[in-house]
Design a protein around this nucleic acid. Structure first.
Lengths: 210, 210
DNA sequence: ATGATACGTTCACTATAAGAAACATATTTT
DNA sequence: AAAATATGTTTCTTATAGTGAACGTATCAT
């Protein structure tokens, strides 16, 4: 054993998503898709190349399909895996969440270089993280290392002017209204270059899916 | 045959994603994950309950694992399926893309009710879609039906005041600096309520993963 | 009703994935 | 260096997924 269970636990937590595998009613789901299109087992058989009997058994959870069989299914039915694995959409019907943040009411996270204000922090399971940032840094040297995190980031200047330093490009000056989109695992750092501290709005993606 | 191929074609298109099934180097990917954690086949065997030999064969693409085997893999390794299927990160090593949009240089899409300005439209494969919108609508009645799309949306008021109408909530007045995050498949619509046309910045998620 | 057709399930057989142990190399220990 | 241990591959067996044919039942036509 070269790695401890603690490490595994850490990995699970780091992943940020429940690593649970639901009963995965794959058969049920397949049948649902099939019936939605008014297809017979023969139809699906022709499309996928899998035997009618095989399909029947999969639908009734009598066998656990091979991965290559699953591939035939998703190509043949023209769906993608998430669709096939998606539980019979429990949420979709009722997804009407919202999270209002009045100006200045965000959650503040001060650091020496930045003063972040998280904007929709009340909503837990979301795919974007929006925040407003007052850029306190005045010199690139104030950063001991690159800011870097998974995913992508969109940034727009609300007030003042900033210099955007990135790992792979020349520094870039951004003025009020300018915006930029970049892969945020590329090191990056902001400094204010205007009289006042600059203010930027950023939105980051959460690190999951490809 | 109870359904035409046209229907199937339509389904593929409707899905909005290329229904291609890449060679799916599942074995390669598994090995990558394993080595990244400095795990041996025995380690993974203990975690997943699969035999060492089986794992070896999966890694070398000598067999196509059963779906139940895949489940054991993802639970045992504490990952989720997308992670396991993600192609051996072709980008990750070199992901330093960026897309700058100077103020006013976005791509304009005028409609009767809104005037959108797409902000980082040069970058194709991205997970968020940012755009600035001038809200032309002055009456809720100008909308013939709800605006509605997959995914989630973040919105912040840059100028003026707006009224946000949503399918499941009372209308909400938002002033300069206010922001809101919501599920965008819930119907929504904006109207300006200030003297000038209001301007908002929105960021939508792309419609993929669950 | 009677036969014919269409669908899904079950059976008997074949193909293949999963498991245990032997094998082949590395790597470490003494 | 030799022995011991660790790690990944290969072999052989067994469990099970996949197939085609037979079966049961429902629907339709005559």
């Amino acid at each position: 054993m070269t790695a401890s269970n603690d490490q595994n636990a850490a990995l699970r937590i780091a992943s940020g998503r429940k690593p649970f595998v639901e009963p995965l009613r794959l058969g049920e789901r397949l049948k649902e898709i099939r019936l939605a299109q008014h297809w017979t087992l023969d139809d699906v058989s022709q499309r996928t190349g899998l035997a009618r009997s095989t399909l029947s058994k999969i639908e009734n959870d009598q066998i656990s399909p091979t991965f290559s069989a699953v591939q035939k299914l998703i190509t043949g039915l023209g769906i993608d895996l998430p669709q096939l694995l998606a539980p019979p959409k429990p949420q979709s019907a009722t997804s009407g969440r919202r999270d209002l943040t009045r100006a200045g009411d965000g959650q503040r996270h001060p650091t020496p270089t930045y003063e972040h204000e998280l904007l929709s922090w009340q909503l837990a399971q979301k795919r974007m993280i929006p925040f407003k940032t007052i850029v306190r840094a005045r010199q690139f040297e104030e950063f001991t290392e690159w800011v870097r995190h998974d995913g992508e980031e969109f940034l727009i200047v609300l007030d003042g002017d900033i210099m955007l330093y990135t790992e792979f490009y020349e520094p870039l000056t951004l003025h009020h209204g300018d915006s930029i989109y970049f892969d945020s695992e590329m090191g990056h750092a902001l400094v204010s270059v205007s009289e006042e501290d600059a203010v930027v709005l950023s939105v980051c993606t959460r690190g999951d899916s490809p």
